[in-house]
């Protein structure tokens, strides 16, 4: 007699993976929370987070959008102007330190820095450099937009039953004054100044601590909030380490995965959904990537999200009044992913 003898099939590679078609691999997620269609879910983080929000809406769940576009703005232009991507108009929040920075602003514990980037006659937000692709008309307009995004982000925290966060990067760029940028200055906008702008490849303990701090502060204004973590399966577009981008990607994702695992294991109010594994595990043979082996195909996104909902149903039963899944209409290639702009700086 030993502990392995009574383990379920999913604990063993051969019956649960090797002997199965990849599309029959099951029991990948044992959800902690019985998410109901009426409960409010907000989504933030790296590029992949937007799929969760979209999938929730398609299936009749309540994806909370605290900064919606004006009535009448076309879907295409709303997307271009970064509405309906995340639950408020924060743009990509790639790192846990950026998340903490947003939470500190939202809770009024820190003020958003006064730094603004100007190009020609347009003004760019260092903390959302692509939020208005052509920039803002004035500094005042930019400030008002920042204020709106911060207020809306706070509302997301206050009103959410579930806060879904997708961890994206460990590599980050800071100003020596202490604030962090989502993108290296000089890429999406702004000018790079080596005296002021410093690179940091964050490590496990710091990432873990920042995420814990962010969640702790959110719980202070919403004691009922629960968290669901995912790790973006999308490889780095570029790395500023000396490593090959493949090596840098594996290091970065491994750390983020470990942080997510640690928190989900330790805390009953935090769950981890394994979208990263479904896309990236060798068990799935890379079939969910597009031909550039970076972008996740719409088929892959659908597959991941189907598992999300099937797992919930499998554990908690069928949802009431949820429409049948509809085909995903957006391709991942259309996703709003500021980091991809780095590709333009690589050698052709």
């Amino acid at each position: 007699m030993n502990p392995y003898e009574n383990l379920p099939e999913k604990a063993f590679w051969k019956p649960s993976v090797a002997n199965k078609s990849i599309f029959d691999i099951s029991d990948l997620w044992d959800p902690k929370f019985n998410i109901q269609p009426s409960q409010k879910v907000v989504t933030f983080g790296s590029c992949f987070a937007q799929h969760i929000g979209h999938a929730l809406q398609v299936r009749g769940f309540t994806w909370l959008n605290t900064e919606p576009p004006p009535h009448g703005l076309s879907e295409k232009n709303a997307r271009l102007l970064n509405y309906n991507i995340f639950s408020s108009r924060t743009g990509n929040i790639y790192t846990t330190s950026l998340l903490k920075q947003w939470v500190l602003w939202a809770l009024g514990k820190n003020n958003i820095p006064w730094e603004i980037w100007k190009k020609d006659s347009r003004y760019f937000d260092p903390f959302r450099p692509r939020i208005e692709p052509e920039g803002f008309a004035s500094e005042e307009e930019l400030r008002l937009s920042q204020k709106q995004a911060i207020q809306s982000f706070r509302k997301s925290i206050e009103q959410a039953d579930y806060f879904v966060f997708t961890l994206g990067l460990t590599e980050s760029w800071f100003n020596i004054a202490g604030h962090e940028y989502p993108m290296c200055p000089g890429t999406a906008a702004g000018d790079f100044n080596p005296e002021k702008h410093k690179f940091k490849n964050q490590q496990f303990q710091e990432i873990l601590q920042n995420l814990q701090d962010a969640f702790q502060m959110m719980s202070e204004i919403n004691s009922e909030i629960k968290f669901i973590l995912t790790v973006s399966p999308v490889p780095l577009t570029a790395t500023n380490t000396n490593n090959h981008v493949v090596v840098a990607t594996m290091q970065s994702k491994s750390i983020l995965r470990a942080v997510a695992g640690q928190l989900a294991t330790d805390n009953p109010l935090i769950d981890y959904f394994p979208s990263y594994e479904i896309i990236n595990s060798p068990a799935f043979k890379g079939v969910f990537f597009d031909s550039n082996q970076r972008n996740v195909s719409s088929f892959g996104v659908n597959y991941v999200m189907d598992i999300f909902f099937r797992s919930l149903e499998g554990k908690f039963g069928t949802f009431n009044q949820v429409p049948l899944p509809q085909p995903e209409k957006k391709l991942f290639a259309d996703d709003v992913c500021e980091e991809e702009i780095l590709e333009a700086f690589g050698k052709k």
């Binding site: 576009p69 004006p70 703005l73 076309s74 271009l80 008309a137 307009e141």
Partner: peptide
Amino acid sequence: SRTVIEST
């Protein structure tokens, strides 16, 4: 923003 309003 003005851009959003004009687009709308």
